[in-house]
Structures are given as C-alpha cells and as structure tokens.
Design a protein around this nucleic acid. Structure first.
Length: 806
RNA sequence: GCUCCGGUGGCGGAAUUGGCAGACGCAUGGGACUUAAAAUCCCACGGUGGCGACACCGUACCGGUUCAAGUCCGGUCCGGAGCACCA
C-alpha cells in the first residue's frame, strides 16, 4: 500500500528540486523552435493574490508545460505592473514610501505564486517601477514625442473642490468625491496626449492577421468605432460663418429640422452678444460640466437642452431656416461638436424632438407607423421621399448621391470618423514614470537626451497633489528648475507622470531580454521571440490595455524597433471567479477566498485542478468549497493508482481505444481553452482503471504525463516513486494513433419521425442500406412501423437513423 | 444608454458542422465496511404518471425554419463585462 498522499511534503519538495535543477529556465538557444506564452502581469495590490489570479496563470502554465514536453524552447515569464493609484493612496494614508509598499506587496505575491508551482522563468522577472525598466518606457515616450505623436492640450479632469485634487473616474461616486463626499467638478487641465487616432486604421486592419477570440476582435473594432459619413456645412443665418456637422446619414439631410451643438461649442462665446439667453446657456453648460461623457450620453428618456435664441442655421439643400439648440448628449470630443437633427430617423433626435415639440419630417419611407409616432431607423428597406433629387433612391444610393452633390457645391464632403479618442497620457500623481520633457519659455517642449535616461522619480516629502491640482513633483523646486537643454535658459521639468498603462504597453518585449542596459531588448532576442504566441488576459482589458499595447507595438514596428506589426498572435480571455454566492468577491460582501488557505489545506495541485475544472474557461464561475474537495478526492484516487499498478510496457487491449481517445481529447482540449473537459476525460479514464482493477505501467505513464501540466507536483512524485526514467517535466508528450481512437462497433439511435424509439449496433463503416434494414428489423422499431407509410429514410453516418412515417 | 457576452437538473457544468440533452464533478438518498463515526467502496439521482415494460413533458419566454433545434432565424425578459484617470 502506498503511503497517504501528503501535499505538505510533496509540493515543497518538488518546488525545491525544480529550482535547483533550473527546470523552467528559458533556453537562449535560438536554433530551437520557440513558444512564447504570456499572461497579464498582476498589479501587486495590498490584498495579496486573489483566487482569480491562478485561473489564467494555470491555464497557460498547462500550455507552457505541454510545449516544453513537445520540444519547444518556451518563454513563460512573470513580472509586476507596480505603478498605480492604490499603492499611492495607501502610501499617503500610512506615510510609507510607495516604493516600500510595492516591495512588500511584490514579495508577498511572488511567494504566493511560487507556492503554486508555476513554471515561470523567474530569472526574467520585470518590474515597471524599476528605473532600469522605466528607462525604456521613457525612451518609447521620447520616440513618440519625436514622431509628433505626443502633444499637449487642455482636457477636463475630475477635480474635488475640497481636497483640491484631480480624481480618477473610479474615485468619483455619484458625482461626489469618494474620500470626502464633496462635489466634483470638471476642471480644464493641460494634459499630455498620444495620437492613437492616427493609428486607428492600422489597429483595425491588424486584427485581420491575428487569431483573437472573435468577441475580442469585435470589441476592439467597436471601440475604435470607424464610421463613414459626411461633414456638411450649414450657414449661420445672416452671418458669414458656418456650422459644420458630422453625420453618418447624409441621405436624411432634407429631414433636418433643427441642430444641436455641444454646450461647450465655441460659437456660444463667439456670438455671445447676439444670443439673448446667453446666461441660460451658461447655466446649462455648468450643469453639464458636472457630468462625465458617460452620464451625458446615457438615459435616452431624459433629454435636456436649451434653444439658442438669436441664432439660426440654414439647411444648405432646401434653404430652410432651422433653430439651434444645445444639449449635453452632443459631445465636443466626437465629430465636430455639433449635429444636424433628423428626428424622423434617429432615436435620440426623435426623443429630443418629442420632448421639445420640434417638427418631425419623414424622408425615408417604409415604416408601417407614422414617424410622428415611432422613429424609423431601418436603412435596408426604406426609400427616400420629400427629398427632391433623392426621391425614390435607397438609403445607400442616396448617401452616395448627396455626398457627390455636397462635394460639387463645396458645402460638404465624405468623412471618416472614429469613436476612438486620443489617449490622455498625463496624471497629476507621484507614483508613475516621470515624463522626460522640459518646458522652456523660448524653445517650447524640449525632450531629454537619450543619454539622460532614466529620469529618476525623485524623493518627495508628500505624495499629495498640490493645491492647484498639479503633481506632487511640482513642489520639488530643486528638481523642477533646470536649464533648457537647447538654449541653456531657465526652464522647468514636466511634473506630470505617466499612466499605469504606459509600463504595461510593452512589458512583453522586455521579457525577451530583461537585463539589457543598451536597448529595450536586443534585436536578436526580439526577432526570435516575437510575436507572443499566446496571450491570455481578462475580458476587462479587451479595449484599453490591449489596444494601447497594440498601438505602441505598431508604432515601434514603424520605427524599426520590433520585427512584426502585431504583438500578440493569439489572444484569449478568462472569466472571473466569483464568490460562492455568485457575486464578485469583496471584503464587504464577506465572500473572499484566500488562495493560501486552499494551498495549505488541500495543496497547490488541488487548487490548480479545481480552477481548471470549475467551468467554461471564458465564463465567470462561482467558488465552491465542495468542488475543491471533489478535486482533492480525484488526486487521491490518482495517488492510489500506485496500489493497482502492474507490469506492462503496452496498453492493455481492452483499454487501448480509451487511451488513444483520451490522449487525443486532452491534447486538443488543452489547446482550445477546454481545460474542464480535459480533466473530465482524465476522471473518466481513471474510473475505467478502477473498474478494471489494474493499470499497466505504460498506461500509468501516459495518464501521469497527461495530468502533469495541471497537477505537476503529485505526478512528479508518483513518477519518481514508480522508478520511471528521469523527470516527468522533461518527458515527451504522449502520441496517439488516430486509427485507434475509434471503436469498430458503435451504438446509434433510431428515430421514428424524430423521436428516439430504439438503438442498434452497427459497424463504423456500414453502408446506409444495411443500417436502415437493421433499424427496421429492430424489435423495438418493427412493431411501430406496421401499417404506416414510410415517407423518408435518413441515415447520418455514425450518428443517427430517422425514419419518417405517415 | 451604447458595445460585447451569457441564460441547460438541487448546484458547477457537458453536448465537432443542427443528429440519443444532462458527460464529469458536487450535493442528496439508500447499501457495504465499522462497536460507532469519519474516510473509502457500490447503487440511485430532470419532472409528471404507472407495480412495471413504458408514456408524456423538459435547455429563460413567445413565434418561425427543418425529417430533426440547447444549437439556426425574428421578437421579449433576465444576468454579467467594458465605457477612456481602477488595473
């Protein structure tokens, strides 16, 4: 009898051996085929590792381990995305340097990850807060700046009137400051921006060449939001000026019955003197300023707005004079900050027109309900009406014709627009990468020289932003006041820091050559390792992080720094792990599970197995303590296979098909995010071993090898106790014979008119006539066919027989 | 609100291109072992009716396509993720 399975001994023992043997150290042998598996590096929060972290890490650990067994040179690295707001806030509250906070958190995270037995190459660990790392983050920023892709502009930020601090959106709760409850306003602040919009088309087109799960591609495309339409000029009545609008429906131009400008539109100031209700407009603008864009565009039911008295516009195609309104659902940041409203054929315009009693004119016919009662937005069926030379055309044809007309007359032109906005790149915070720019009154923004990098984050007395909302670095006058590198005159350093997204936009490059102090990584290393073969991360990073890092990568490709245009060949996403009550885990809900407790009580292998078995990898799953115990029970059954192991270097004949089938299923499932069914197949196989009462050494070897990527410690221990050669971690992945994965004889169902009425045994390759005859002769079927007329006989090979009767 | 995703037993979930709904695990009930319990092993386990072979119903809801629908199409309801300064 084997001893009891004791994970307290087995797991630390093998973790030590793997470390001593450098089992997972990535080879620098560039002649071998490579495989780069990547998981999103964590933010080392003060709470320690969450049970959500091991889900993706285990999944790609499985892939990495399997690839090593298949002979690949595997890069599976880990690091820390350590700049960020929570650390800074903790530092402020507890008067500890954020660097110290980070060090402590990283140490804890690392110990926790190591206790889970991941095959990370810890020699390649990176940390975004390490000056040797952010040296290159700053270097990339300088490249962007020199390429004209970084610029400064005024952007609104959330500002707490009481704390005098710029706030992250997350710190604004119902329009109030999360810390003090005071009112939050939108304050204009000069900000560094990155021109990601210049890369919009490249970022859309790049998606065609990569293998991302479809919904990630869809989300990226929709986020970029490319739309084609037209810009149209409306003359301001009696003025020399024009109001330009962007519309995706130029075909409906004859139906424009009013216009709406964003409350921030510059014309309000420009024509201040002619607007009789200026004060009212300003009051409305102040109200709107309190809302985020998100709040402004939500709640379609509750439209607000004010008519501008004293200013009207002229519709360029029919000369009609129409009123101009302001409303917060029109954003200055999208299009031209003004729209033409066609209430008959646009939902928001319709709601607005109904509320303020504005005319609704039908220009696309096809609705069964009058447009005064229901908006009609169909573009496939409708035909143009009330539109002079457009009448009778389809929407698509009308779009082309009106755009030509506008272009000819010089009052408009085709225009592509994007929902994507430029990336706000400054933070008025301490704990981030300093922006390597100097402001000189004479020379403007002057970049630091490359040799001066890294620009170190200086020590400060307080991490609090200043009263004016500037970064705490602004108070460091010694650091701030410098000589202009160009003219030698007095100048000031930029005191804003970069957002956390900066460091995480290129970390996967650094892993290929993490200690290089001459370049962000050597050309050879990048050429060999890139692109990342498989990148897994949370669905919550699908739009921002993924898009930002693709943008930087594409830029670096254009600059000749990296060898390929797209950074990630394959992208998958995992679902969240929820508490046992199906809600998000949080302290306040009291449903938090600490992975340390699970490792202590059941072992790392149990935790790994459970998290892979918990459900469909891409969907959210609820934690279950009973489920964990079930997985522990499975591993104990694996352990006890030692008691029924018999000699034999081949698969026994009655299990042969089963073995080949399972190798195939597990091999394929590990590649396609179906870890739960792979484990289910292994459970089924072990049940067969026990049913039979014995397992040959050959069968055991295969079984252990298939399970090893999921549960590396216990399989390594049994491997060694059974005296098998070498280590399981560098044994070869089992092969299967396709011909041996199918039974010769199979059972199929026989239906009569679509209902299962019996089963028959057939040979896999039996022909249709023979199968149908067998079905009709079946004792359960034959009586049911008596006196009936057979209308149709269907045989789907290897699947089903259906006899349709009357 | 906008974009995307999901809804299957008591529970987590399974079901290549439409082809036997409920694999595997959990919970529960019964049995074996035990002085007893735990652990382990065996059996049952969607609902309704029937002693029973069996019959009917059943994949959120309504309708459609098909010999055949969890899967495809149209509509409705409910839940989740993201929404640009959380990471």
């Amino acid at each position: 009898m084997a001893q009891l399975y004791n994970h307290h001994e087995v797991e630390p023992k093998w973790q030590k051996i793997w470390e001593d043997e450098k089992a997972y150290k990535t080879d620098n042998d560039y002649s071998k085929p490579k495989y780069y598996a990547l998981v999103e590096f964590p933010y080392p929060s003060g709470q320690g590792l969450h049970v959500g972290h091991p889900r993706p890490y285990t999944a790609l650990d499985i892939v990495a381990r399997k690839r090593r067994m298949q002979g690949y040179n595997v890069l599976y690295p880990m690091g820390w995305d350590a700049f960020g707001l929570p650390t800074e806030n903790y530092a402020i509250a507890n008067h500890i340097h954020p660097k110290t906070v980070t060090e402590n958190n990283v140490a804890r995270f690392k110990a926790q990850l190591q206790s889970l037995g991941y095959s990370f190459d810890w020699d390649r660990e990176v940390n975004t807060t390490d000056p040797n790392y952010y040296h290159w983050t700053q270097w990339i920023f300088l490249k962007l700046f020199n390429a004209g892709l970084a610029y400064k502009t005024n952007m609104p930020i959330n500002f707490c009137t009481s704390c005098k601090v710029g706030l992250a959106n997350e710190e604004v709760v119902n329009g109030k400051c999360e810390r003090c409850g005071s009112e939050v306003i939108r304050k204009q602040q000069s900000q560094w921006m990155l021109k990601i919009t210049e890369y919009a088309d490249k970022l859309i087109e790049g998606l065609d060449s990569v293998d991302y799960i479809e919904r990630v591609k869809t989300q990226q495309r929709n986020w970029i939001g490319r739309s084609t339409g037209a810009e149209v000029d409306f003359a301001l009545t009696g003025k020399d000026d024009k109001l330009t609008v962007y519309t995706t429906r130029p075909d409906t131009l004859f139906g424009a019955t009013y216009m709406v400008m964003s409350p921030e539109h510059p014309y309000i100031e420009k024509y201040k003197d002619e607007i009789s209700n200026y004060d009212e407009l300003i009051a409305y603008r102040e109200q709107a300023a309190k809302k985020s864009d998100f709040e402004r565009t939500e709640l379609a039911k509750d439209k607000t707005g004010v008519e501008i008295k004293g200013l009207t516009a002229t519709n360029p195609v029919n000369g009609k004079q129409i009123p101009i309104w302001i409303s917060d659902y029109v954003l200055m940041s999208y299009g031209t900050g003004a729209i033409m409203a066609v209430p008959a054929h646009d939902e928001r315009d319709w709601d607005f027109a109904k509320k303020f009693n504005l005319p609704i004119i039908e220009v696309v016919a096809g609705s069964s309900v009058p447009v005064t009662e229901q908006v009609y937005t169909d573009v496939a069926e409708g035909k143009l009406v009330n539109s002079e030379f457009l009448n009778g055309l389809s929407v698509a044809d009308a779009k082309v014709k009106i755009t030509e007309f506008l272009t000819e007359k010089g009052i408009g032109h085709a225009k592509t627009n994007y929902k994507l906005r430029d990336w706000v790149f400054s933070r008025q915070r301490y704990w981030g990468e300093p922006i390597p720019i100097i402001h000189c009154d004479k020379c403007g923004y002057v970049p630091l020289k490359e040799e001066e990098l890294p620009l170190m984050l200086p020590e400060v007395d307080s991490y609090m932003p200043t009263d004016t909302g500037e970064s705490p670095l602004a108070a460091m006058t010694d650091w701030v006041n410098v000589k202009c590198p160009k003219c030698g005159g007095p100048a000031k350093r930029e005191t804003d820091t970069m957002p956390q997204w900066a460091g995480s936009s290129w970390y996967f490059l650094r892993y290929t050559d993490p200690t290089n102090d001459k370049e962000l990584a050597s050309k050879e290393a990048l050429k060999y390792w890139l692109p990342v073969d498989w990148y897994n991360g949370g669905m919550e990073h699908t739009t921002l992080h993924l898009l930002y890092s693709r943008f930087w990568h594409r830029f670096l490709y254009d600059e000749g720094v990296v060898p390929c245009p797209e950074p990630y060949q394959k992208r998958t996403s995992h679902g969240m792990i929820l508490g046992s009550n199906g809600e998000k885990m949080s302290k306040s809900r009291g449903n938090v599970v600490n992975p340390d407790d699970i490792v202590r009580e059941y072992g790392a292998d149990t935790l790994r197995t459970y998290e892979m078995f918990i459900g469909a990898f891409d969907l959210a799953a609820s934690w279950s303590d009973e489920g964990v115990r079930g997985c522990r029970r499975f591993l104990e059954r694996v352990w006890k296979l030692q008691d029924i192991t018999v000699d034999g270097d081949t698969y026994s004949s009655d299990l042969e098909t089963n073995m080949h089938k399972t190798i195939k299923k597990v091999s394929l499932d590990f590649e396609s995010l179906k870890y739960n069914t792979a484990i289910a197949a292994l459970m089924t196989l072990i049940n067969d071993f026990y049913k039979k009462g014995s397992v040959t050494k050959a069968e055991l070897k295969t079984f252990l090898t298939l399970l090893n990527p999921v549960a590396p410690h216990i399989t390594e221990e049994i491997w060694s106790l059974e005296g098998f050669d070498g280590r399981i971690y560098n044994t070869a992945w089992p092969e299967y014979d396709e011909a041996k994965t199918v039974e010769n004889e199979i059972e199929i169902a026989v239906q009569i008119s679509g209902k299962v009425r019996g089963k028959i045994m057939i040979a896999v390759d039996e022909d249709k006539d023979s199968v149908i005859t067998k079905a009709k002769e079946n004792e359960a079927i034959a009586p049911l066919l008596e006196g009936k007329t057979i209308v149709k006989e269907i045989y789907v090979p290897g699947k089903i027989v259906n006899i349709v009767v009357k």
